[in-house]
Design a protein around this nucleic acid. Structure first.
Lengths: 197, 197
DNA sequence: AAGATAGTATACCGATCGTTCTATCTACAA
DNA sequence: TTGTAGATAGAACGATCGGTATACTATCTT
């Protein structure tokens, strides 16, 4: 408790509650109760619930991008192997006990209006993730890095939402196998370790 | 309006409102106002809002499966071409003005608990769709029809949710191109018309 | 010592939520 | 004509929603 201010506690609580219980279905009372904070404190840092939601989405975006970059950097092998490391990250993410689908897809499901700040923030995150993936594909020497990045994005996102829908564990493996085909079709080499896994 | 009973009007209104505005965010009042029906009438046919939601999801499932089967049957070409027709259906679906992502993914985003009837209904639909797709892949002579069906499901679902997230129109084309690669890798032949499109 | 900072406690607001009750109107049979 | 069943309109329920107001208490700086 010592180092954590009320704002961080609120963001942490809201992040978890919004993700697992949905945004509209999660009331302010639940958030402040979980955070162990007073209502007035919440409204000091976040003038409205929408501001809190937006802050949560932006926080989640930063965390996902940062953690992904770190783990890809730490992955062994060549540039192609580093791309494939994304599917290992995906596997662990979807196997987590608290997994409830893609936080950004979930947010957009509740805010379909593209002009809404929450929708826009989720879209911005997806754009950033796409940019990072394109960069990876380019440095791996893919013939069409933009197309490959699109396709891998589709595979990753599709696997996440399908896993949330049906809970089957084979879906991530299928996505991984598809990625191997698409990546090698683009002239990118994968090491034996990656192909054998 | 003549032949339509109150129950159908309610289902139609709720289907539209839940899809575009979200389920929790759509109140009973909005539903009955849109349907042009009194509140007591709603509660006669649906004892609670949850029952209405469930009925809407199940209705949507039947509609999607039926329409998809019809359009695939009507598609020209061999069995592989019929699979690829799914991406044309997808294109039209995502280009529609009222497009708001995948209705079932959206529902699960608001009902993450797998034991909740709404979640279960969405999962059941996905299972049915998967079964149909597997059947298509098998009759097309794919080497691993189960794997291919998984991968195509991932591509279709991923394209839908990414399109909802970022609105880009290239994502469906990328999914289609990936499907061509994966399908031909499974030894399924595609006609010239399909490959050239 | 004084004052700012950060947070607590709680009571309250109007609006809306899902749901139920009641009073009224209508249609048809006896 | 009267009785009755069913649909309708709308008030009202308690609960909860997001948000505000007022008053109090630590803690830390200067």
């Amino acid at each position: 408790m010592a180092g954590k201010g009320a704002k961080d506690k609120l963001l942490e609580a809201a992040k978890e509650l919004f993700y697992t219980g949905g945004i509209h279905a999660t009331g302010i009372d639940k958030v402040i109760e979980t955070a162990g904070v007073t209502r007035m404190t919440l409204y000091k840092y976040f003038p409205s619930k929408d501001d809190l939601i937006l802050a949560v989405v932006e926080l989640k975006s930063r965390e996902v991008l940062e953690q992904t970059r770190m783990r890809v950097d730490a992955a062994p092998g060549n540039a192609g192997d580093k791309i494939m490391a994304l599917f290992k990250i995906l596997q662990q993410f979807t196997d987590d006990a608290g997994f409830c689908g893609c936080p950004f897809t979930n947010a957009v499901a509740e805010y379909s209006d593209p002009s809404h700040p929450v929708h826009a923030a989720a879209a911005k995150h997806t754009e950033a993730a796409r940019g990072y993936l394109t960069e990876l594909c380019r440095s791996a020497g893919a013939k069409e890095p933009d197309l490959l990045a699109d396709q891998l994005s589709i595979l990753l996102k599709g696997a996440v939402v399908l896993k949330a829908l049906e809970g089957s564990c084979q879906v991530v493996r299928a996505a991984r196998a598809a990625a191997v085909v698409l990546i090698t079709a683009q002239g990118v080499e994968l090491s034996e370790e990656t192909l054998g896994a």
